[in-house]
Amino acid sequence: MPRIDPVEAMSGLLVLALGAFFYFGSMGYPMGTIGRMGPGFVPHWLGALSMFLGAVILLSSLRTNEPAPDLYWRPLVAVLASIGAFALLLPRIGLVGAALVTAAISILANREAGWRMLAITSAAIALICWVLFVLLLRLPIPAFWWDL
């Protein structure tokens, strides 16, 4: 009984699923002919190719075996949440507020950071962003909610 490498098996399934998505998803668009291809043609066959590669990777998972990698839940959630906060806040309260909240949430990823470090660092970063991008570089970003 061959052992199955979880990393390779997951990789194969992921590639297979992605291929299937484009293979079947493109069927809703006109395919055209080989001489006059429609919008569905190229994604359809790329999807087929991807499913084939997914199957190859899945097969190779039967022979290798490596330990499953660690997951980094805390940094993962905190970093993604901080980016989401930026997308949400920038159009509503402007750059300075968004940068402050983004920096603060992302610092939560660091287990060793205390509250004082969080407050000082995120305030400093918000200030740097404002001075650098709005005052010096004059990028067209609203700095505060009254600039919106």
Binding site: A104, M117, I125
Partner: peptide, 20 residues
């Protein structure tokens, strides 16, 4: 620990600005 929050902010600002 100080660098990466700034990097994240810069990434967000850069991406936002390219297409507003």
């Amino acid at each position: 620990g100080i660098l990466y929050p700034a990097v994240l902010c810069f990434i967000c600002i850069g991406v936002y600005t390219v297409r507003t």
